[in-house]
Each structure stands twice: as structure tokens, then as C-alpha cells.
Amino acid sequence: MMSAAFNPVPVSPLADGLSSAVFVSGEEAANLAIADISLQPRFGCKGPGAISWLTAQGVPVPTAPNSACVLPQGKGRVLRLGVTEFLVEGDAALVASLAAAQRPSGVYPVLRQDACLLLSGRKLNALLLQSCNVNFAALDLSTSPVVLTSMVGVGVTVLPEEKNDVPCYRVWCDGSYGLYLWQTLCTIAEELGGGTVGAESLAVLL
């Protein structure tokens, strides 16, 4: 039988672009660093039954629409997108078990093949001001807000966080827009004295 011979691996939507990228480090990375975290394990679902089903699976559900909460033991995050849509990201075992689990009616699976970027650095706000018309500086991060908006013309989901007084934001978009989003933000980042970094260098922020 043929299929046993194959072991395909998933590939990030940014792979082609990254293969020719020049990474930055040091001061430049501290200014503004953009990393590709598209291949993080992810599970998505939505529907009127989503909240009770996720709870029954032991997944903590953010209480407010458009907010997030962390999984225990630093295993990842749960985002509540709007009122009844959810994105679970981080822990491969949890994601796999949710994908395999039986879903009752009222829970609709959403296949997540996002492009996802991790943006961090002291010049991050300057980048955001050039790309998105949401006042991120005015958000109260203690409520873990999630923002669904448009960035450089592309629909995105943004989770703003701060680590050691340095802003670090996760930005998800449809994979087909990923290369465009990354290239556009990189152009601006380079003007601000930053650039692309490997995901490993931002591992502490994951």
C-alpha cells in the first residue's frame, strides 16, 4: 500500500518568504522583532454549544467576549473570538485530543491554518500606528482583550500582551494573506530599525 511511505510535514504559509529572509538580532531585535509562529498547534470551534463542550473537555473558557485566558502550566492560550468562537493554541496533546473528540450538535469545528506572527519590541507601537487604526496603547491588558480588526488591509486577530515591560503581540490572519502581511510589516519594521527573527529567539515570549 502506497500511503505508508509518506510522512508529509505541515509547512508554514511564510516558508517561501522566510527561506530568503535576513534575520536580525541584538539592538535591532530589541527595537522590533517579527517571528513566524504559524505552525503552533491550534484548534478552532464555534457555535452555541461551544462553551459547555469546551468546559466539559476541561478547557478554561474566557468569560468575556473578545478576551483570552492562559492554559494551566503555561501550556498555551484560549481565545474567545466574539461571543461563541474559540481558538485553542499551544499544547499539542490538548489540541490533538480536541480535534479527535466527538462534538455534539451546536459545536462546529473550524480548521485553523493561520499565518501567525509574534511581534515584540520597544518600537512596536510605532509599527501598529502605521498599520492599524485601533488604539492599542489605550487597552487595559489586565482584562486580556482580543482585538478583531484590519491590519494593512487584512483581517486579523490580535492578542496584545506584555512581558517584562516589553510589548509582545500575537497576530493571526488567514494563511493565504500571510506572506503579504509579513512582508508589509517587515518593510515598516526595517524602517523602524527592526526586522525578522527566528521563532526560537523569541521562545521566552511564547
Binding site: 509547512v11 504559509p13 517561501d16 487584512v154 488567514d174 494563511g175 494573506y177 506572506l179 503579504y180 515598516i188
Partner: peptide, 17 residues
Amino acid sequence: GRGFSPERITPIHGRHE
């Protein structure tokens, strides 16, 4: 200003190129 013209590509784009 700086124009934003979003573009979508499929995952097979590089192969076609």
C-alpha cells in the same frame, strides 16, 4: 503614503513560481 494592496496566494505558490 504607503499603499496597502493585499494579495492572497495559495500554499503551492512557490512551486508555480
